[in-house]
C-alpha cells in the first residue's frame, strides 16, 4: 500500500467512534474473532499438556485458577457470546435478510439497512455478552 493512495489504514479501519453502533459491532466482531482465535490456539496448547501426565495437566490448569486467569476466562466468555450472537446477525444480513427494502429515499435519507432490527441484534449481543460474563465472574470468584 503506497502512501500516495492516502488510505486510512488499520488505524482508520479500527476506529469505531465515527459511524454509529454498526461500526462498533464490526470492530467488536473482528476483535472477538481474533481473540477467540488466540484463545483457540492457547486452548490446543493447554490441552496438549495432558501429554505430560496428570501432574503437568494440573500444573497448567492452576493458571486458570488465579485472579488473572478468571478475568481472562470471563473475557473469553464475553467474546464467545458476542461473536456468536452478532455472527448470526451478520450472517442474516449478508444473506440480505432484515436489511430493508429498496424505496425512493427522502431527506434526511435515514439508511434503511441501518435499521432497528439490526440495532436490536447488536445491543442484545452486547447485553448477552455482559450478562454471561458477569455470571461467569460470579461462578469463578464465588467459589
Amino acid at each position: 500500500m503506497s502512501k500516495d493512495e492516502h488510505r486510512e489504514g488499520i488505524k482508520g479501519m479500527a476506529n469505531p467512534t465515527r459511524y454509529g453502533i454498526e461500526r462498533v459491532a464490526y470492530w467488536l466482531m473482528r476483535l472477538s474473532g481474533l481473540g477467540l482465535l488466540a484463545y483457540f490456539v492457547g486452548h490446543i496448547y493447554e490441552t496438549s499438556n495432558i501429554l505430560r501426565g496428570q501432574v503437568g495437566w494440573n500444573e497448567f490448569l492452576e493458571l486458570t485458577q488465579t485472579t488473572e486467569g478468571h478475568l481472562v476466562l470471563a473475557i473469553v466468555i464475553a467474546m464467545c457470546v458476542f461473536h456468536t450472537v452478532n455472527g448470526i446477525r451478520v450472517m442474516l444480513g449478508h444473506g440480505g435478510i432484515g436489511v430493508g427494502k429498496p424505496a425512493r429515499p427522502d431527506y434526511p435519507y435515514e439508511p434503511a439497512s441501518q435499521n432497528y432490527r439490526h440495532k436490536i441484534g447488536i445491543y442484545s449481543a452486547i447485553l448477552l455478552a455482559a450478562i454471561a460474563m458477569m455470571y461467569g465472574l460470579a461462578v469463578m470468584f464465588g467459589e
Binding site: R18, Y19, G20, E22, R23, A25, Y26, M29, V90, G93, H94, Y109, P111, S113, Q114
Partner: peptide, 11 residues
C-alpha cells in the same frame, strides 16, 4: 463486512 458506514455517509 456489513459495517454500514457507506450508508451512513451517503448524501
Amino acid at each position: 463486512h456489513f459495517a454500514g458506514s457507506c450508508s451512513q455517509v451517503c448524501p
